[in-house]
Design a protein around this nucleic acid. Structure first.
Lengths: 198, 198
DNA sequence: GAGGTAATGTACCGATAGGTAAAAAAATAT
DNA sequence: ATATTTTTTTACCTATCGGTACATTACCTC
């Protein structure tokens, strides 16, 4: 089985470039020319290696979840509800307003790509969100410090809602330090330091 | 000064049609053809009456704030922090997942229109958000039941963050009843029924 | 009526969108 | 060296993008 001409670029590095563009400009705001320029390859190479724009986006989203967004899955390894929540919320602040990254969250941005041609990309983002939330709910169900009357599903959804809100705020230009204050207040309210009701 | 040919459509009704399209499809996902079709007018009429796409969007956003989004300003008339927060958060649930409206929030969607050509529309949304948040902070500063150690600016930002999160959840397809549960849990956490610390 | 004025309908503009055909180039296999 | 395979390069495709020129129509004033 012969080899053919070798690929002149590193697909993972190219994916990282594509990720940055999609992250900054959103799915609908990114053209194929933006992508090929950033990736340093030409159009047929992109199609040959990654498929079309939709498929490239799906691969980019996967890479996002396993890279910049990996904190969300790792947070579930914390032993208590409190620590899981802290790591999720603080991680969202860093992800969306940290230095050197585009503002906001690629996933949240992609949910808002709601033009007629963006349905597949949007659905990919929604599926990804659902998977993350299911994992969070399962984790909360098994936590030792889950408050008695608390429904883990609703708590997971609220945590998800708060991280979503943080992403919107970051996308709207909220600076990192203010976002941290917001996050800490949310954590204090959700998980009071002593042991208050909810 | 003579009048010329009278306009054959109602500008406000046309704005409402445009609002619905922008709300459902987002700024970037909406084409001029989508707009003219929905508004029932042709292209030169649109440009003659509303300016270009950007200016039309600005007018639509204004109409959104004064129409479907008016609950946010009206919520500030409530006497207490608790009631202001309740009306804001519950209003966000109704706005973004209520029956008969497109999912999500036009403002939050527009913040995520971050392609190169969408900068003015995005900025209009951001300005609008800033104005709303400033009004909320001023209102909280004067509320009689603001907890002593509480910074009204941060509380306003957290409330804003929560309503943003609700909008994202709605845009992602979260059904209305689940969103209500999330909202009520957030309100309980933020403003405990008795008088706990935060 | 005639003239002025503003909105309408139609047809069009250059630019760019996502996507591809076909030939040239670089590797392996025999 | 030759044949085969795969990628790259270049050039191009149709459709649609936001925006407009121009002639026509409908109204008001005189």
């Amino acid at each position: 089985m012969p080899g053919g001409r070798p690929r002149a670029f590193d697909p993972d590095a190219a994916l990282d470039r594509a990720l940055e563009v999609f992250w900054r400009q959103g799915y609908e705001g990114t053209s194929l020319s933006d992508l090929t320029t950033a990736m340093g390859i030409n159009r047929p190479s992109l199609y040959g290696t990654f498929g079309n724009k939709e498929e490239l986006f799906a691969k980019v989203l996967e890479r996002y979840v396993g890279g910049p967004g990996a904190f969300a899955a790792e947070a579930l390894e914390a032993p208590t509800v409190r620590e899981v929540a802290e790591r999720l919320v603080r991680g969202a602040v860093e992800l969306t307003s940290g230095p050197g990254t585009p503002g906001g969250c690629l996933n949240v941005k992609s949910v808002h790509a709601c033009g007629p041609d963006s349905a597949p990309a949007r659905q990919a983002a929604i599926d990804c969100r659902k998977a993350g939330e299911t994992a969070l709910r399962r984790r909360l169900e098994q936590a030792p410090d889950l408050p008695p009357g608390q429904d883990p599903a609703t708590l997971a959804r609220l945590l998800h809602t708060i991280t979503d809100g943080i992403a919107v705020q970051a996308a709207g230009g909220r600076p990192h330090d203010e976002l941290s204050e917001i996050a800490e207040l949310a954590l204090r309210a959700l998980l009071p330091p002593d042991g208050s009701a909810s």
